[in-house]
């Protein structure tokens, strides 16, 4: 019994200073936040011989004091569904700059879909994502531009997709720069269909 009580008492004495210290919360560890979201757009040409054209540009953002700049330009859909229809989509996303110790710049431009489903339909998609700059000790720049799909499923249809992802700049002691642009799909499934896909990912400035 005494053998058990003594260690407990010693432990309580060792941490006795904590009894008098008030409860405290640490100061915020991270800096400002800048979120730029330009993706998730839909462009559809559904009618016979119809034409749909869409251009979306998003420019932002700056996060200081070791903060985080998030730029999301992907998740876009371009669909040519009608017979003889044409759909063209141009998405440009430029961002973000994060400055300070352990600053993070995250840029995502992938997960895009380009489909020519109608007979003799044409679908063209161009997605350009430029980002991000992270400056400071232990700064991180992360760019993802992959997971894109290009499908020509209508008879004698044509689907063309160009995805360009450029990033990033990470400056400072222990800075890290990562770029991912893989896992893309290109398919022509119908008679006389033509699918063309170009994916370029450039990083590590």
């Amino acid at each position: 019994m005494r053998a058990l009580l003594l260690p407990v008492a010693a432990l309580a004495l060792a941490t006795g200073a904590g009894l008098t210290s008030p409860a405290s919360a640490k100061a915020p560890e991270m800096g400002g936040v800048s979120i730029t979201r330009g993706g998730g757009n839909v462009n559809t040409a559904a009618g016979r011989n119809s034409v749909a054209d869409q251009a979306v540009s998003t420019i932002g953002g700056l996060a200081r004091h070791g903060g985080r700049a998030v730029t999301l330009g992907g998740g876009n859909r371009n669909l040519a569904l009608g017979k003889g229809s044409a759909a063209f989509q141009d998405v440009t996303t430029v961002g973000g700059t994060a400055i300070g110790r352990r600053a993070q710049s995250f840029t995502a431009g992938g997960h895009n879909l380009n489909v020519a489903r109608g007979a003799f339909a044409t679908a063209g998609q161009s997605v350009t994502t430029l980002g991000g700059t992270a400056i400071g000790r232990g700064a991180q720049s992360f760019v993802a531009g992959g997971h894109n799909r290009n499908v020509a499923s209508g008879r004698f249809s044509e689907a063309q997709q160009q995805v360009l992802t450029m990033g990033g700049t990470a400056m400072g002691r222990g800075a890290v720069d990562k770029v991912f642009g893989g896992n893309n799909q290109n398919r022509a499934t119908a008679r006389g269909a033509f699918a063309n896909q170009q994916v370029v990912t450039v990083g590590g400035q």
Binding site: G32, V33, S34, I35, T36, R37, G38, G40, N41, V42, N43, T44, A45, A46, G47, R48, N49, S50, V51, A52, D53, Q54, A55, V56, T58, G60, G61, L62, A63, G82, S85, A87
Partner: peptide
């Protein structure tokens, strides 16, 4: 903090129609 969100939907559904956005 700064949050910027944009979203577009562009559809040409009629025959020989045209939509630009």
């Amino acid at each position: 903090a700064t949050t910027n969100l944009n979203r577009g939907v562009n559809i040409a559904a009629g025959a020989r129609s045209a939509a630009g956005q």
